[in-house]
Amino acid sequence: MEKISTVTGVAVPLRRSNVDTDQIIPAVFLKRVTKTGFDDALFHAWRQDPEFILNDPAYQGARVLIAGPDFGTGSSREHAVWALRDYGFDVVISSRFGDIFRGNSGKQGLLAAQVAYEDVERIWEVVEAEPGIPVTVDLVERTVSVGTLTVPFDIDDYTRWRLLEGLDDIGLTLRDEESIAEFESHREAWRPKTLPIREPAESGSL
């Protein structure tokens, strides 16, 4: 995972709320078994419409997506993050994110910056007045700047640190391998195990 500290690039104002993961990437694309090559799938249904903002030449090569509230709700599909990443987005700005989506983002190097709704409105206005104007998202300072406007964003400290350091999750956890083994040594006999395979008791309901 690459380190992120600041991102500067074209920003797309997506004036829609409640953009669920089915809209970000429809289920039909979940059939792939690789982690890349999802850029064409992003907002697939909406992109059929030539008027859809992502089809506007002014916003080509965008790195920042500025969405309405409740972005990334719905299904847990991580493909939503891959699709955004593959398309070229490094940052999504919204006043509220779906929990799972936000978690997935941090792990894939996509910065989910939570910005107060009034500030999102202000950023939209600036960007719409001058499409293609560069927007800078500074993870160190936790700010979004465009033109003369600078607003703060929220991100939890841990995710921020991870993004800044470009740290892989599993490696981090495996540093605690001893604690895990310790915990497992106390796991009660009655807790469920999938193996060996057992058959239901005669008297069982099934």
């Binding site: 847990s76 599909r77 991580e78 493909h79 993050v81 799972i100 978690g103 997935n104 792990k107 894939q108 999750d169 599993i170 981090l172 956890t173 495996l174 605690d176 895990i180 497992e184």
Partner: peptide
Amino acid sequence: IGTSEVEHVLATQTLP
């Protein structure tokens, strides 16, 4: 959980 967490649980049986 998401797919990277699936990988995390497969590898470590834990989640942060």
